[in-house]
Design a protein around this nucleic acid. Structure first.
Length: 617
DNA sequence: AAAAAAT
């Protein structure tokens, strides 16, 4: 019988009782007020030391955590705060207009006001702000209609069609409006109800399809509405309630920026931590309080080892680009963070994995972190709508540079006012990136480069310079392949093709984002033969024109070219490995017995598991 | 074989 989350926290809480009694005796220590109660009159704030009956006891079950189902009436929540009187809160006094904030330092508040992440307003006050329309951050939702979706797992909550159907809370709704999100994207329609239901989730959806919001909304909403916790106050350790991990520093920054928008004025505090930047500033941010920590693995391990962060109170864990996070390079670190530190067990916390691709092997690994999870696959944007036009050309290694030059010249001439459209050029190596960038530069093309040998400052500068159009050509290694949301990338050039088709999928996903169209050109030669078959298949699925020579290479190519990692030839990014024969020869137990070709065939849903909702609604 | 991720 494993220890429940409530137990482990109760234990932790007892260990620090003495220091917290001390802290409580400090007259200046304000009472922590949970975000969802901060805008209410003080009388509404429940007594922390009140009867336990006010806080139903926690009952973790095999069916997963029950506590996030705060709106279900009968939902149970973890028991916290029984000894709560004794605890201060590391981040007390942050944000909001509630009790915990203003009564703290005699009215003198030396902390800056929460920066308006929407950048359209300097004065943050109680007025409803008028948000200007200058920036269209909205997604082209029409491009998302009729995208096939598949879910599997037990008792999948039905999808929603509008944000209004989901009670995310008024503050979050306001921020959704500020983001100009009109209606949820397919991944949001399905993932949000699942996540709000407290269920674990493995979701395949292309970045740029609204993934970040799909896991951030439920996390923020959950933190605002769940039974709040008194967090221990131990030395300088902080206790985030949610952890979001991503494989690159820039992606973590991006998720942080997004999450800041979503959590604006909710009182939910988001902090980012990543390597390559001075740790002290990050430590200071953490000390001001953190509910949601966004981090890269290396820096997080550092913070954990310094005991500046504890994962003891984590209720929500999200891995973005989860397949990358669990590949050979990252897996040990992730295992350490999730399984060998002080994070609550799976089934106690909620775990959500997101990626555009989910190879079967990785799914198998990932299931270690999940409990009775729901698998969700959302059609690849562009698979039927041609949002990304994919071209493959045979280019000898020695001709690549001049060929690229030709493309760039043509692009410049066709461009508006002779301006170079944003072009992202992927190469294999860091050295190759530097040398190509230099060559482009001396040939009159303003280029910059991003790769892991550059300093973090250089990386961020390069990204800004590219985004702003100052250097409209960015030469990149795979550090930029995943998740980065760079608006207006018109063209992705695979100067060197990756060895893995999944990497190709992520790379070309840097264009054609948010429903806009894009172009992807690949230079193919004899060193890419192993990619011929999966590439031809992928292009076929995406209704792309497959050159005859590629089809020929594909038919000649050795079968094991990609280790069959795109399991089942998944039509849009993956299928639940639990439904495959390799996982269980007893598929018929589930009544489905699908032979591996039924992916996306709705007729099988009902047979697979009762309660599975058809996503073809 | 390469890239990423802590100092």
């Amino acid at each position: 019988m494993r220890t429940s989350w409530a137990d482990s926290v109760t234990n932790a809480v007892s260990e620090i009782a003495v220091s917290d009694n001390n802290s409580l005796s400090l007259p200046t220590r304000s009472t922590y007020v949970p975000p969802h109660l901060r805008n209410r009159p003080a009388s509404d704030v429940p007594n922390l030391s009140g009867p336990a009956s006010e806080r139903a006891s926690f009952s973790g079950t095999a069916g997963g955590p029950q506590w996030p189902r705060w709106s279900g009436g009968g939902g149970t929540k973890p028991e916290f705060g029984r000894q709560g009187q004794g605890y201060g809160y590391a981040g007390a006094g942050r944000g909001g207009s509630g009790v915990g904030w203003n009564n703290r330092s005699g009215g003198w508040d030396r902390r800056e006001r929460e920066v308006n992440p929407f950048g359209d307003d300097d004065e943050v006050d109680d007025r409803e702000q008028g948000f200007t329309e200058q920036e269209n951050m909205g997604i082209n939702f029409d491009a998302y209609e009729d995208i096939p979706v598949e879910t599997s797992g037990e008792n999948v909550p039905p999808p929603v069609n509008t944000f209004a159907e989901i009670d995310l809370g008024e503050m979050l709704n306001q921020n959704i409006r500020r983001c100009k999100y009109v209606k949820p994207t397919p991944v949001q329609r399905h993932a949000i109800p699942i996540a709000l239901g407290g269920r674990d989730l493995m979701a395949c959806a292309q970045t740029g399809s609204g993934k970040t919001a799909a896991f951030c909304f439920p996390i923020i909403s959950g933190i605002m509405r769940e039974q709040y916790v008194q967090r221990p106050r131990v030395a300088r350790t902080v206790y985030p309630l949610a952890l979001i991990l991503s494989p690159t520093r820039e992606l973590s920054c991006q998720i942080h920026d997004e999450a800041k928008k979503f959590s604006y004025q909710t009182g939910v505090k988001v902090v980012v931590a990543y390597g390559g930047a001075p740790i002290n500033q990050q430590l200071r941010e953490l000390e001001r309080g953190v509910d949601i920590l966004v981090a890269t693995p290396g820096r997080l391990v550092d913070l954990l080892e310094r005991a500046r962060v504890s994962l003891q109170m984590i209720r929500h864990l999200a891995l973005d680009e989860a397949d990358r996070m669990l590949d050979m390079g990252f897996e040990p670190q992730i295992r350490k963070i999730v399984q060998q530190m002080d994070m609550p067990d799976r089934g106690v916390r909620q775990t959500m994995l997101f990626s555009a691709t989910f190879p079967r092997e990785i799914q198998r690994l990932a299931s270690d972190f999940l409990s009775n999870y729901i698998f969700l696959a959302v059609g690849r944007v562009g698979s039927s709508t041609d949002l990304i036009v994919q071209r493959v050309e045979i280019v000898l290694e020695s001709d690549k540079r001049s060929h690229l030059m030709d493309l760039l010249h043509a692009q410049r001439e066709n461009g508006v006012h002779g301006k170079q459209a944003l072009t992202l050029v992927f190469v294999e190596t860091k050295k190759g990136a530097d040398s190509l960038e230099h060559w482009l530069y001396i040939n009159g093309f303003p280029a910059t480069t991003i790769h892991g040998d550059r300093t973090q400052q250089e990386r961020e500068l390069a990204l800004r310079s590219f985004k702003s159009g100052k250097t409209p050509i960015l030469v990149a290694t795979d550090v930029a392949a995943r998740g980065l949301d760079i608006p207006h990338v018109a063209h992705v050039v695979n100067f060197d093709l990756p060895n893995d088709i999944d990497d190709y999928v992520h790379r070309i996903g840097r264009t054609g984002r948010a429903g806009k169209t894009g172009l992807a050109t690949a230079f193919f030669n004899e060193s890419n033969l192993s990619l011929a078959r999966p590439l031809a298949e992928l292009m076929q699925e995406a209704n792309q024109e497959v050159p005859a020579w590629l089809t020929r290479y594909a038919s000649r190519a050795p079968c094991g070219g990609n280790k069959n990692r795109r399991s089942g030839g998944g039509r849009f990014g993956g299928r639940d490995f639990r439904r495959e024969g390799s996982f269980s020869r007893n598929l018929d137990y589930y009544g489905g017995g699908n032979g591996g070709s039924a992916y996306g065939v709705p007729a099988n849903y009902g047979e697979y598991a009762p309660g599975v909702t058809s996503a073809w609604d």
